[in-house]
Design a protein around this nucleic acid. Structure first.
Lengths: 231, 231
DNA sequence: TGCTCGCTGTCATAAATCTGTCATCAAACT
DNA sequence: AGTTTGATGACAGATTTATGACAGCGAGCA
């Protein structure tokens, strides 16, 4: 599954350039040229990262950024600001509003791509390597294998993705709806109670042999990996 | 509490220099000179930021970086790479492996300190946006956890929302009706005395172990967090 | 084609936990 | 003292979560 980039840019010269180059780099690119579309696309297209022009018609990039941060559906999507100005003042203001990085025009594609990767790594560190760990739990994307301690844990595809999702941010509570979105996909309709069942299956597999349950149920909210657990 | 820096550097000349200068700048500095130690120290010393030499004996800095990113315990610690080479190629590779910034030797202390602050500014706010505190009480929306001092406080959903509401404006007095509106929702009908009960429950959970009650009862008006309380 | 097998989603039921109300007592005001 | 307002334990009922059972699906295979 390729990385999805949403480009918000009104100058066609630039957006074309970006689309062309980023597509060549293997990203899946969607372009919009105005703020309202940006907000809609952010929810709809579910990009992994947003490249946001500072200067936009109607609404400024900063405002978009603020609004992205205000909605829980889009809050976690990292944003890189694209701007013509290089002044530190603006840079800080950008960060302040929730931008994750900042690229000054004109920029080299190479640098932009590197920064995209850097930001993704930082905000979604699990995307980095093929191996992620949490306490004594090791999840390997490459071999699709999970181990706990020295024991191999057998998981179905759904449980695997569920754990993969939870482990991205240990401690963070995911609602059933968020899990459905992330694990099952946005266009799938399943009962939200189904999440319970899969959490149960994941628990059973993970804790086989009487181990401590690393998954925390948060009543009326959802589930999380228990960050106080460490072995 | 000062900012903790972990320096991973095998050349003693440099690590001494760093330790001396960073300590003088008010950082708490720990130095290790090899990759495995670095990984251990990262978990153990819990630095706020890591300065990582590119060239290390045994394992390369890049590899360390990758491994730091794989573990949930160390995933969020930002990394600044120190390197002798200035080539863009390497720079990009560094970003690619998860570095947050990149400093080329020889560097001025001033620049390094500035970069440390810049990186911390960039990485911290995102992580702490969902946390509110009042005195020694910490409420984290992301993990849906409340702690007092170092103890986790167990709250039901209603008590959680109640505290969440009160903590938004410490000191402000909320009438029972206002609390019902904000905590229970506008279209719900419950006895206004029910608020008393939940305040009681919140108090019990919060003050377990004989702590000072941070909630102030305002006779004939309602409740508030006591702004004179601060620990 | 027909069969097995593992995985899924849903449901019914049991278990766990939380809630709202009331009765009663304590504290604060007049 | 009398009156009003808040604190609190008890409890029945309501919500929410856990779990076992089951039927449908689809891949792999004879």
């Amino acid at each position: 599954m390729s990385i999805k980039v949403l480009v918000v840019e009104d100058e066609e010269a630039i957006s074309h350039l970006l689309k062309y180059n980023l597509t060549a780099e293997g990203f899946e690119v969607s372009v919009v040229d105005d703020g309202d579309e940006a907000l809609m696309a952010a929810e709809d297209f579910q990009p992994d990262i947003i490249l946001l022009d500072w200067m936009l018609p109607n609404v400024s990039g900063i405002e978009i950024c603020r609004q992205l941060r205000a909605r829980s559906e889009t809050r976690d999507i990292p944003v890189i600001m694209l701007t013509a100005r290089a002044e530190e003042e603006d840079r800080l203001r950008g960060f302040d509003k929730g931008a994750d990085d900042y690229v000054t025009k004109p920029f080299s594609m190479k640098e932009l791509v590197a920064r995209i990767h850097a930001v993704l790594r930082r905000t979604n560190p699990a995307a980095t390597g093929n191996v992620v760990t949490f306490g004594d739990i090791v999840l390997d994307r490459e071999t699709m294998r999970v181990t706990r301690g020295s024991v191999t844990v057998t998981l179905g595809p759904t449980e695997f993705r569920l754990l993969e999702t939870l482990i991205k941010r240990p401690g963070r509570v995911y609602s059933r709806e968020q899990l459905l979105d992330r694990v099952w996909g946005q266009d799938i309709y399943v009962e939200s109670r189904t999440v319970d069942v899969h959490i149960g299956r994941l628990r059973k597999a993970l804790n086989k042999g009487g181990l401590v349950d690393p998954i925390r149920t948060v009543r009326a909210s959802g589930y999380a990996l228990d960050e106080t657990y460490s072995g």
